[in-house]
Design a protein around this nucleic acid. Structure first.
Lengths: 135, 135
DNA sequence: TAATAACCTACTAAGCCGATAGGTTTATAG
DNA sequence: CTATAAACCTATCGGCTTAGTAGGTTATTA
């Protein structure tokens, strides 16, 4: 299940990508438009800025704006930053790998093999999609 | 992320499917072999029995056994029973649909569309796989 | 009749999620 | 130079879920 954090984050990015204008947009405006708790969204936008997706401007007339071209923003990278691993098990995660305690041998584990296939198919979909496709 | 419940459940089903013999296998044996907490596994096998995957026999020499042919057991149905929805958002779930509170219109929601694609690709992988493929 | 193993109910510790509260810093407007 | 605006930062919290534990009940077999 996708967390609300991720869902809201994607919505916010889409909102910014839809704008022709590249001027800063305030958190409150996005929150209002997308029905998101302003304070919660604030923390999300902050992590998106720290991750290099957004730029920010303080003070009056400030807000957040996209740094990169929406075409260059893969959905895989967005989701990894907000949600963490895309894989359904740590032992099949490319970016957040972790060994299972219970599993003596991954290569013979039935669940492992299955989840690799799921991961690859998901990765294919998300890797081909960019923020531009959503907006 | 797949819960341990689901992971253990699939492992247990695989274990049973691998056996040529169709005699009942005790919870303790599966737990030992797969490194699962016996009591936790007990509850999992119980739900698998109630869902029609397993049969059970009480008393000495009892245990659990597969009811159906492993070829007939789709991984989608197993996961839905143990984990719940396969979709990453309730609003794109076929079997556990739920409307998003924040979203006024699903058809224009960028996240919605994206998650439908992810769901479909996952469903394709899991729908083609049966328990026999795992074992 | 004793042992065995499934069945059932209840509880719990820990962790995460979504959100809130309140203050600090920086930029702009007048 | 001062007031305002908005991002930035820290801390906290209630509620829920997960993974497991404990302990007893029922049914079957030897």
């Amino acid at each position: 299940m996708l967390s609300k954090k991720t869902k809201y984050g994607i919505k916010a990015l889409s909102y910014l990508a839809k704008r022709t204008d590249k001027s800063p947009v305030q958190t409150a405006e996005i929150a209002r438009s997308e029905n998101i708790s302003p304070k919660f969204l604030e923390s999300i936008l902050l992590t998106l800025r720290k991750s290099g997706f957004l730029g920010a401007k303080k003070g009056k007339g400030g807000g957040y704006y996209l740094i990169k071209d929406p075409n260059e923003i893969q959905m895989t990278t967005v989701i990894r930053v907000l949600e963490g691993p895309i894989a359904m098990l740590p032992c099949v995660s490319l970016n957040y790998y972790e060994k299972c305690e219970d599993c003596p041998d991954e290569l013979t584990c039935s669940v492992h093999k299955l989840m690799i296939e799921v991961r690859d198919s998901t990765l294919k979909v998300l890797g081909e999609k960019t923020l531009a496709d959503l907006a």
